[in-house]
Amino acid sequence: MESNQDSNYRLSYSPHIHTGTKTSEVMGGVALALIPAVAAGIYYFRLDAVYLLLTTVLTSLLSEALMLKILGKEVDLSDKSALVTGLLIGLVLPPEIPLYAAGLGSVFAIVIGKQLFGGLGKNIFNPALIGRAFLVAAYPVLMTTWTKPVGFDAVTSATPLAAARFDDVLTPLSRLFLGNISGSLGETSALALLLGGLYMLVKGYMDWRIPCAAFASLLGLSAIIWGIDPGSYSPPVFHLLAGGFLIGAIFMATDPTTSPVTKSGRWIFGAGVGIITVVIRAWGGYPEGVMFSILLMNAFRPLIDRFTVPAPFGGDRP
């Protein structure tokens, strides 16, 4: 059997050994891991960030409680999953978005993306991304209006990805790393996201395979096309740091409910996320493709699980 050094929490096919870790602990850990990103968001966008995060978190919790009540289930928010969803939605929205739109996205995420599928552990798609996808379709203008961080000139400006795609301007990597760029609240600072990811890794709240596979496939594919034609495509490290890739790969693709449970399945899943992201960024109609790539791979999850079920000891593959 596998050693337990790298992780003390894992989902897998049977046989199972319960380690005593509960959902609420994992979700609480994810929320803790998001603190650097939240802090970076508040540092760069000040009060806008505070209001936005408060709105998404409160509406998420409220709609979760209401839905549980309507559906006749026990109203219990202690698993903290609604808190994490609320935080994640806030982090993937433009900081200047009107609060009612942010609230609507959170309601949609919880009610349609999660509870109508059966609640915690039964949803097919990542609820936070469902909420964001709904907002992109509902308010395309609001969702593509970006402000630069406070302290510089607070005017609308293109995101690094849009600038690279439409105006051929590459944002310096150091600024991408620290986060002094326009973009969604939580995607600005690569450093903060990596810190959170590291924490989750050390504590074993996520499987390292998915982000690793996603990083590798994203870097690999973008290196190939950049090598062929550096004039029209962006360099691989730029792809890694710009846009929502880090927050997506670390915090959303690793959602235990919507990612495969088998080890090989997780490699496939992560690789798919990276490849589709590059394909959409390089040749698609949108400058950013992380949201669609994760949602697409979410849809493939049951299929991936089915084809990667390990054979029972001494038996045939099911």
């Binding site: 009107p98 739109a101 349609i112 709904f134 379709a137 509902a138 308010y139 395309p140 609001l142």
Partner: peptide, 15 residues
Amino acid sequence: YKSMVIMVMPAGAFI
């Protein structure tokens, strides 16, 4: 009231 574009698109019809 800001126009909610999704409602005149096919996705809005289904929802």
